[in-house]
Design a protein around this nucleic acid. Structure first.
Lengths: 174, 174
DNA sequence: AGTCTAAGTCTGCTTGACAGACTCAGCAAG
DNA sequence: CTTGCTGAGTCTGTCAAGCAGACTTAGACT
């Protein structure tokens, strides 16, 4: 495994790319808020204590990346304002949030338990994420093996190219 | 939904807590590396281009939070060094990584596809995460309803308490 | 004309990311 | 037995990001 993994590049890994979108502080917390139905700036700000400036930035980049969209709304007797709603791309992140919550509930919850649970609308049972293969087998980490996908690339980083030059120069000298 | 969500506190939400552990830049990328079998400082550094200082910090806090542990190893003809391995707590994050990869593969992959896929050891089929309730029904976001859990708390933030004081003072004046 | 409110900007301070140079421990070749 | 090599760091200085607190703005209402 070690030798193999060292031969391909991590630069086009989709986890890395996903984290470029989601990896800034507070981004996932903002999404959680929208998923529980909080759509307005001040509601989020009061509940999460995120600094205004940061919340402004996060909402803007989430809109920019197409996870949220701004939608006008009007409370009676107030002017038109914008609220934030999930796009399909945003909605499709739900399994990530549930996976995070499953893990958090197991390792980080208070003794009295988690503040929220999610249930199936139709049967009322608690909802989790599961690892499953396309043949329908449920499985655990140990049963998963990583394989190169169609987009695999050889490992060449700037560092590599630099090292390579050094090696070549050294061989030329000797 | 809106009115309801505004009455309880997000302060003990386990997603928020999980993001305190995972939400710093590069943390999840480091975990991905360990999951694909990269266990050593310089291997990670070369593959990911994370600055040394930052990588040192991330590894240290991951060890501190109990997701990784340091394990001594010795290459023949070299001194003893430490490598980083997943603990159970770390391994249990796998569904989060797979959920991120599923989403990233759908929305962020290059045209030639993702560089890695995961397959089931026993049947060879591709592995994904699924939302499922404990009765075994597979489901989508729209079929999930959030409910208060045992650890639910009323919404009282510093801001609230401040606002409350103001309101009380105002009523007293009038 | 003055007040209220949601959703911001603006300012200044502190923390974190980052690049590039330096360190350190032990093995090994000369 | 000094010199060099290697993996895994530490040190230093710069620049971006997070943050708190005050200010701004557009429209509705009194």
């Amino acid at each position: 495994m070690r030798a193999e993994a060292l031969t391909w590049s991590a630069e086009n890994c989709t986890i890395g790319r996903a984290m470029e979108v989601l990896g800034e502080k507070w981004t996932v917390v903002v999404l959680r808020e929208v998923f529980v139905g909080i759509r307005r700036f001040d509601d989020m700000r009061v509940r999460t204590q995120i600094p205004r400036q940061v919340l402004t930035n996060r909402l803007a980049t989430l809109v920019e990346h197409g996870l949220l969209r701004r939608e006008p709304y009007q409370e009676p007797g107030a002017r038109v304002r914008e609220e934030y709603r999930l796009t399909q791309k945003g909605l499709d992140l739900y399994p990530v949030l549930v996976a995070l919550r499953d893990w958090g509930d197991r390792y980080l919850a208070d003794p009295d338990g988690p503040p929220m649970i999610t249930t199936h609308r139709d049967c009322g049972e608690v909802v989790h994420v599961e690892l499953r293969c396309e043949a329908g087998h449920e499985l655990v980490v140990r049963e998963v093996i990583p394989r190169p996908g169609p987009g695999i690339r050889p490992l060449t980083t700037p560092q590599d190219r630099h090292d390579h030059e050094l090696t070549v120069a050294k061989q030329r000298r000797s």
